[in-house]
Nucleic acid binder design. Sequence first.
DNA 1: CGGTATCCCATTTGATACTG
DNA 2: CAGTATCAAATGGGATACCG
Lengths: 161, 161
Amino acid sequence: MRRKSVEHDECPMSQAAEDIGDAWTILILRNLFNGMNRFDDLQKHLEIPTNTLTDRLKHLCEHGILTRKKDEDDGRRVTYRLTPKGGDLYPILIALAQWGENWQPSPKGKRLHLLTKATGEPIAKVRVTDQNGRPLKPKDVVPTPGPAATERAKKLYSKSW
Amino acid sequence: MRRKSVEHDECPMSQAAEDIGDAWTILILRNLFNGMNRFDDLQKHLEIPTNTLTDRLKHLCEHGILTRKKDEDDGRRVTYRLTPKGGDLYPILIALAQWGENWQPSPKGKRLHLLTKATGEPIAKVRVTDQNGRPLKPKDVVPTPGPAATERAKKLYSKSW
DNA sequence: CGGTATCCCATTTGATACTG
DNA sequence: CAGTATCAAATGGGATACCG
């Protein structure tokens, strides 16, 4: 989406969404987290047009979420890998998966189980907590504008609209 | 985004992203979590075109994320509120905010602090954990297709591509 | 107040073909 | 293998005007 009226760096939330909120991008990241890291594996598995895949990969590389490296043995071969910044998207993807599975269930049952490798138990639900691990609801959290907050953000959080 | 080749209910992750991944939608949800629940407050604060706002609100209502209720006193007045399904998006929004603040910092400093109301301390970083609260990395988690998984998903998670 | 209805235009999508 | 090039078609964005 291209917007005129909303400054680009206004909100860390929507800025993040702009970078990864696209559905193709989410699918690509999902596959990368599962170890699929070559152009044509992605293309075949997702059935994504090659130019769209190029576009998304380029965008992810430019934003430091992926690295693109040529294989040293085979110069034609390219590998995409998650950077630390990319790897840190993991909680977001898992939270999306849990929400989707929970609230938009398939009539046929579960699509995806996320199990702890060590024990085989399901992982915990991703939550917002305080430093001691106590769950927090929206009303328990105070969003406070920092020095780089826009006027708009300050307005929102001061509730003087 | 409209796609042809990817079945609509394939992946809970990308399906969730389709529902809320749009940047306007994220901004609207953010404002709703902050208690802004009227059409024209949203419109003025976000400077979003009215038809786009209508579109996003309708979509969110149709997907059970918001309710639209007319004020009993003033029949002209309408209020949008988060449903439980909508409220459960909170961890996703917070995770997006934390990632954006962390990895796409503004040169001027922090834009948003998220503080625990009870203590004033920053909230914890949203993480993926096991049932005992121990942090899990992608390699510690086994994604397992459930009964409703598509062939494509099974293929991905079996790594036989 | 809370929207609809139009309109136009920039962008994006996906198909197809081609290349180093 | 990993893309580029091209292109027609769809779509979505935003401005403006209007309505119950």
